[in-house]
Amino acid sequence: MLIAALEARGIACLRVPEYPGLPAPVACHADLQLCHLGGARIAVAAGRGRDGLLEALRKRGFSVEAAGPLAPDYPGDVPLNCAVVGKVCIGGKDKIDKIITNYCGEAGITLVPVNQGYAKCSVCAVDERSIITQDPSIAQAARRHGLNVLKIQTGRILLPGYDTGFIGGCSGLLGRKLLAFTGSLSAHPDGERIKEFLHSRGVEPLELTDGPLYDVGSILPLLEEDVRRRP
């Protein structure tokens, strides 16, 4: 349903295959398996069954960097679960894959270690200076590094097999001024606050379904085409 809603808006989607060993509810979550470093660089977790994904990324012009394999249990599943927001990278303390730490050093990006290992899951990037999160440690660290932060309540995001999903896992930017959500913001107790925060940043929400918010492992933007430049 989500892919159909995106494709109906002219957005090409790349499905992420199941990662062997990860629990079934999160085995296809992109935010565990990939980290878009910036530009054409992308880190992908090593493991069996990656060939099709790697080839699809390379065909789209990406330089794929092989990260370490994932393990089924925390913290072995979070080395790539980092949120790169402008000039900061938020990730779990002592849990970040060396490819990401090396990239941050090369690119002049400040690494922000936090207690929450599922950092990308917990961060909805609104723009290069603004995030939404339900995690208090991330909210505090992000504010210390100059980001605008909306701290929301935990819960009311579906993720089968778990008590709750995360705000980053049910959202993703489709453009600089358009932020997609997997369900209706009215299903969340802070839905109106989220809308107000987005509007204050000049960003419009796009609700892809009428149902509750659903953690799908993030909608990760890879490429953007400016149709105005077409001949």
Rank of each mutant, 00 (worst) to 15 (best):
V64E: 13
E65P: 04
E65S: 06
A66H: 14
A66P: 12
A66Y: 12
A66S: 14
G68H: 14
G68T: 15
G68D: 15
G68L: 14
P69D: 10
P69H: 07
L70G: 12
P72T: 03
P72G: 11
P72S: 10
P72F: 04
D73H: 14
D73K: 13
Y74M: 05
P75A: 11
P75Q: 11
P75E: 12
D77Q: 15
D77A: 15
D77W: 07
V78R: 00
P79C: 03
P79R: 01
L80S: 05
L80F: 01
L80G: 04
N81I: 12
N81F: 08
C82K: 11
C82P: 13
A83I: 13
V84C: 13
V84A: 12
V85Y: 05
G86C: 06
G86V: 08
G86S: 07
K87T: 13
V88N: 05
C89G: 00
I90R: 00
I90T: 01
I90A: 00
G91W: 01
G92F: 01
G92I: 04
D94E: 12
K95I: 08
K95W: 14
D97T: 09
K98R: 15
N102V: 00
N102W: 00
Y103P: 07
Y103W: 15
C104S: 11
C104G: 13
G105D: 14
G105H: 09
G105I: 02
E106G: 03
E106W: 02
A107C: 05
A107H: 07
A107G: 05
A107V: 03
G108E: 02
I109Q: 06
I109V: 15
I109L: 02
I109S: 06
I109C: 03
T110N: 01
L111T: 11
P113R: 03
P113E: 07
P113N: 07
P113G: 05
V114C: 04
N115K: 11
Q116G: 10
G117C: 06
G117E: 06
G117V: 07
A119F: 12
K120T: 09
S122W: 00
S122G: 01
S122H: 00
S122V: 04
V123A: 09
C124K: 03
C124Y: 04
V126Q: 06
V126Y: 03
V126S: 05
D127R: 04
D127S: 12
E128Q: 13
S130C: 06
S130P: 06
S130D: 06
S130Y: 02
I131N: 02
I131R: 01
I132S: 11
P136R: 10
S137P: 10
S137W: 09
I138T: 06
I138N: 06
I138M: 04
I138S: 07
I138G: 09
I138D: 10
A139C: 04
Q140H: 12
Q140N: 09
